[in-house]
């Protein structure tokens, strides 16, 4: 239906014209040591606007750590970051959010006792106009409308926006977490194993969402162990091997066995 409210007020709506940047998010030569563990040695990734980039790597390769440095949640020992073509140095996840970088965490992304609407707006709440707003009173009506619209835009169907999300299924929660990130991200969305807990059908839905988001001009960086599915969806692939970027390549040039070989065998080749 076309009962479109004035478009600019919809937080989830990204202007249809091309975004004004080429590189959505990039980390170059990132290093990070936890005590004696060198989690990242020389990790690099670049995500252009409108692109889905897959970040593959074995368990412990440093993928989650890498994403956290990109989000400002972990301060790296070395390296540089670019967001929307500008060099940045995030001190906290709030800095990343201000630049339009949002994340879908594998777990603990939502507050189970809050409603769908409240979860969508947590950290970005809309206040009422006037005095009530200055007292911190929420505009739940507007929040509900916008949440509804944002979910519709991504073709996400939830039974109700008012229920606590503890009543939702795993797939519904994951879809909500994606919608939330998309609603507030206007530069890049980073996803850490967004399909790990999902069945085939719901994984497919989340992968479709990645494409939808990229088509809006955002950069999407996805960490996953679901190689076949994500390889199909991704434009480019970055493979991390023990904290080092081993390969950056267009996805079309790669097959799953090749990816696996690089994930586990890169070091042996290099040593040989």
């Amino acid at each position: 239906m076309t009962s479109q409210h004035d478009g600019t007020r919809h937080a989830g709506k990204v202007p249809q014209e091309k975004p004004g940047f080429d590189i959505a998010i990039s980390g170059r030569h990132i290093a990070k040591k936890f005590g004696h563990v060198q989690a990242l040695t020389d990790a690099s990734v670049t995500v252009h606007a409108g692109e889905v980039v897959a970040l593959f790597g074995d368990n412990g390769a440093g993928k989650s750590t890498f994403l956290k440095t990109l989000l400002g949640m972990i301060k790296p020992d070395a390296g540089e970051f670019i967001v929307a073509d500008q060099e940045v140095s995030f001190q906290s996840i709030r800095d990343a959010q201000e630049r339009g970088v949002e994340a879908v965490h594998q777990d603990l992304a939502l507050a189970p006792d809050l409603s769908v609407v409240d979860n969508m707006f947590l950290g970005n709440e809309l206040l009422s106009r006037g005095l009530l707003g200055r007292l911190g009173v929420l505009d739940r009506k507007e929040m509900t409308e916008r949440a509804d619209q944002a979910l519709r835009d991504l073709s996400i169907k939830l039974p109700s926006l008012k229920v606590d999300i503890s009543a939702l299924s795993g797939g519904q929660k994951q879809a909500l977490a994606v919608a939330r990130a998309v609603m507030w991200g206007h530069t890049a969305v980073l996803m850490d194993e967004p399909t790990a807990a999902l069945g085939a059908r719901q994984s497919a839905i989340v992968c479709d969402l990645m494409r939808t988001v990229a088509e809006r001009g955002l950069g999407v960086l996805v960490v996953s162990h679901d190689l076949p599915r994500v390889l199909k969806v991704a434009d480019r692939v970055t493979i991390l091997w023990r904290g080092t970027t081993a390969l950056e390549s267009p996805a079309a040039d790669l097959t799953v066995p090749e990816v696996v070989a690089t994930m586990v065998g890169y070091g042996k080749d290099a040593a040989a």
Partner: peptide, 24 residues
């Protein structure tokens, strides 16, 4: 029931890590 402060309070109690990750 009606304010951002209250909502954030309950979010924090509901799942502290989620609240932190939401930038609170």
């Amino acid at each position: 029931r009606f304010t951002r402060y209250g909502m954030r309070t309950l979010a924090l109690g509901s799942e502290r890590t989620s609240a932190e990750r939401a930038g609170i």
